[in-house]
Design a protein around this nucleic acid. Structure first.
Length: 483
RNA sequence: GGCCGGUUCGUCUAGUCAGGUCCAGGACGCCAGGUUUUCAUCCUGGUAACACGGGUUCGAAUCCCGUACCGGCUACCA
């Protein structure tokens, strides 16, 4: 398997979506890790041959997400390299040249069939219960007739001339040898009538010219791989090593789709997932280990990953486990790191970043209960702004109105009189009052928690009061006195 | 329908190539308990799987055959 050829791998995203697809991120991870452990190159090639599905700005966003994940590439459309151009739309002449070569060799032919005829043909075949396949009408046109039609400007495509007999076998690193019968392989269109290549043509030409050593891609490409193999053979080119990765699945086991799952990397970033957590989670799906912690870094993965031990089964993408893992990473951050991340990623308004000491104290209290960054603001807004406090909530723990007011009044007085505004002092004072009034801790403290935060879930009460500061606390408690 | 691939706890998986040490191990989730004023963290314990049926063998999650189920592909999309 290992040749002396240098390792060059690539991902080939199409700029047809909002952002980097999580499935592509998964492939990119394998590419990156495999390239690193073999001292190879990781390249990005943009497959923008479908002009009808082109999405403006998609390419830039895809590249940005890749960088955000830390999957830095060695060659690509924005940074160049020795094998460019890296956008297929800039390589059109190449595909035409090679298609012509195929025609000259008799491995491809011009086809003048209209989409309407093809469509009708397919429907009839399906009605008869046959597998839809091109019927070969234009395969045996005489050279003179072909020339005549070309001269008259008749729209045409170029098709691969697949042999009618024999089989095509290729080796896949994940699944071993896979064999297809040639008679069941369609005469694939290589060059569309608009002059653009199809994926099949472009991928083979580019992978060869870019000296891609390992074609690492999704399992959904297995069925078309024999066509690619036929092309390599027709050109007399050396085959790359094929590595077809299992597909990420929805809960219902179908291929991961945007209808059933968040798939765009931008979504994960907006939710406040950390790139390290995403990388680690995807890593567990393609580099499973037997025992202990599943927490590992990209570098550790580069050390231990083995491309020969990839599981062939498509895993269900488990957002819950990703959230757990994200929490682990959040907790591993320095408080100051987490605070500045919350600000730079837009989860905390910059005006609250000015008082960084205060922000960090809040972050310190919030850190261990965060799963994703976006939860921070909702759960801790009361540290920064006045919040609406629900009367029902405050009164529910101590429903006897006069008892409650008497209690809160004493709390206010005691806190006001406190010499040092500091957690231990606050705790001592509040516990004394709680015992004096013979209240259950829950009734006593939940009432204060609710009055001050408007929430039932908060960081530990006494620390929280200290951080909030005496003025704010008294202000909010006094308001609750009227409930 | 056809072709190709897959099948170990709810989920991700270890074990399968070199059959016994696996009445199947770990992680997430879930449940219970501990810590506790809430939530969370943390700690302890628990729950739960070899798709099915035949073989081969002293012995099969592991080898062979068949069946079932799941998935991918079946475009002038990638």
């Amino acid at each position: 398997m290992s040749t002396n050829k240098s390792v060059r791998v690539r991902i080939a995203p199409s700029p047809t979506g909002e952002n980097l697809h999580i499935g592509h991120a998964n492939t990119a991870l394998v590419d990156y890790v495999f390239a690193k452990q073999n001292n190879g190159k990781f390249v990005i090639r943009i497959e923008d041959t479908d002009r009808t599905r082109f999405v403006e700005g998609s390419e830039e966003r895809i590249l940005e997400s890749l960088r955000w994940l830390g999957l830095n590439y060695d060659e690509g459309p924005d940074i160049g390299g020795d094998y460019g151009p890296y956008r297929q739309s800039d390589r059109l002449d190449l595909y035409k040249k090679y298609a012509k070569e195929l025609i000259d060799k008799g491995m491809a032919y011009y086809c003048f069939c209209t989409p309407e005829r093809l469509d009708k043909m397919r429907k009839e075949q399906q009605a008869r219960g046959e597998t839809p396949m091109y019927d070969g009408t234009c395969k045996h046109l005489s050279p003179e007739e072909v020339q005549q039609r070309l001269d008259s400007g008749q729209p045409h495509v170029i098709r691969l001339n697949v042999p009618d007999e024999g089989t095509t076998t290729f080796h896949d690193v994940v699944r071993g040898d896979i064999t297809f019968e040639n008679r069941l392989i369609d005469d694939q269109v290589l060059i569309k009538s608009d002059g653009f290549p199809t994926y099949h043509m472009a991928v083979v030409v580019d992978d060869h010219l870019m000296e891609i050593s390992h074609v690492i891609r999704g399992e959904d490409w297995i069925s078309s791989t024999p066509k690619h193999v036929l092309l390599y053979k027709a050109f007399g080119w050396e085959l790359p090593v094929f590595v077809h990765l299992p597909l990420l699945r929805n809960k219902d086991k179908s291929k991961l789709s945007k209808r059933k799952n968040p798939v765009w990397m931008s979504w994960y970033r907006e939710q406040g997932f950390l790139p390290q957590a995403i990388i680690n989670y995807l890593g567990t799906l393609i580099w499973p280990r037997a025992q202990g912690s599943e927490i590992f870094s990209l570098d550790e993965m580069i050390q231990g990953f083995d491309i020969n031990k990839i599981n062939p089964t498509g895993p269900i993408f488990d957002l819950e486990k990703l959230r757990w893992m994200n929490g682990v990473y959040i907790r591993s951050l320095q408080v100051s790191e987490l605070a500045s991340l919350l600000v730079s990623e837009g989860f905390v308004n910059e005006r609250y970043a000015k008082n960084s000491a205060y922000l960090e104290r809040v972050v310190e209290l919030a850190q261990e209960r965060l799963k994703v960054l976006s939860e921070f603001w909702d759960e801790n807004r009361f540290f920064f702004e006045d919040v609406a406090v629900d009367k029902e909530l405050v009164t529910s723990y101590l429903s006897d109105s006069s008892k409650r007011k008497e209690y809160l009044n004493e709390v206010v007085n005691a806190l006001e009189a406190l010499e040092l505004w500091e957690t231990e002092q606050i705790e001592k004072a509040l516990r004394e009052i709680q015992q004096k009034h013979e209240l259950k801790p829950r009734a006593a403290f939940m009432t204060i928690r609710a009055a001050v935060s408007g929430q039932t879930h908060t960081p530990p009460l006494f620390e929280m009061l200290e951080v909030l500061g005496r003025d704010v606390v008294l202000d909010r408690l006094i308001k609750a006195l009227d409930f």
